[in-house]
């Protein structure tokens, strides 16, 4: 029979057996026998020799979908479609934002080439909508159509300017920003931050137990990882592949009742950090 118990599962089983043995005052022999029993049980589930029963399904559903603190977010009045604020509605409508029923308070994705282009396109579209809106306003105010056509000629120039700024200027501004910030941080990464309707390039840092988001302009904000309840790595949110096929760290902070999600270009050191934290 092939042993399919992974190292991480083995470690969980060992810890569980040690905990139970300690609580119940088992001898070393009983402890080892319990561990071997748990291993056999896990193996039977893995190989489907023991089919999952109704009680097992209930435990899984309760564990993964029935947690009160998560349900509170999902089912609470703030998540009801009719009562959501304009800002919340816009956030869910946003191309870079997560799905509404698995709401992430703060969201960040890596500041890398393909995401820069996506970001640039999004800013351009927003600017174009604004420019066209202004022009239409003047048009309906009985200004000649020459004004409208003249105004539209500026759009390609505007697009080129924005692309230039995003590719060159913002990159160097981010570099400067990082230099300004505290240098003793344990981990840092350049990201595009999404918070509410605001999407800005910025720096994500971990230092002294805190996760700090510093946008290029505006006030930095931070979260303590003291109440870190759970870290999950995911590519999907509600069955939808998230932006750029990145691996996102989805963090649930119990005290703040906040969920954050972020992806970075180099996830390995962050993964190591969360392994020690959770």
């Amino acid at each position: 029979m092939q042993d399919k118990i992974t190292t991480s599962l083995q470690s969980e089983l060992t810890q569980l057996a040690a905990r139970i043995a300690k609580v119940n005052g088992y001898t070393h022999d009983q402890h080892l026998e319990l561990l071997s029993h748990l291993e056999d049980k896990a193996m039977d589930y893995i190989t489907r020799e023991t089919p999952i029963q109704e009680e097992d399904i209930l435990i899984l559903v309760r564990e993964h979908f029935g947690k009160e603190e998560i349900l509170h977010d999902l089912m609470g009045p703030q998540s009801q479609p009719g009562k959501a604020s304009l800002a919340e509605d816009m956030r869910h409508f946003n191309w870079g934002g997560p799905g509404k029923d698995d709401f992430w308070g703060v969201f960040a994705f890596p500041w890398k080439q393909e995401n820069r282009i996506r970001y640039a396109l999004m800013v351009m579209i927003l600017w174009e909508i604004l420019v066209i809106g202004v022009l239409l306003f003047f048009y309906f105010k009985k200004l000649s159509s020459g004004w409208l056509l003249g105004g539209l000629q500026f759009i390609p120039i505007l697009m080129a300017t924005i692309l230039y700024f995003l590719h060159l200027k913002i990159g160097s501004k981010l570099d400067n920003k990082r230099k300004e910030l505290k240098r003793s941080t344990e981990l840092e990464s350049e990201v595009i931050l999404v918070r509410g309707m605001i999407q800005l390039p910025g720096i994500l840092q971990y230092d002294l137990g805190k996760l700090k988001f510093t946008p290029l302009t505006g006030t930095p904000f931070e979260y303590s990882l003291q109440s870190l309840q759970k870290v999950v790595e995911t590519r999907n949110c509600n069955g939808r592949l998230l932006l750029g096929n990145n691996i996102y760290f989805k963090i649930h902070l119990k005290e703040e009742n906040e969920r954050l999600g972020f992806a970075v270009s180099q996830p390995a050191p962050w993964r190591k950090l969360f392994k020690t934290k959770s």
Partner: peptide, 12 residues
Amino acid sequence: QWETAENGRKRK
């Protein structure tokens, strides 16, 4: 007595 089972693990 503890022995090595078919799956290569120690079993009592």
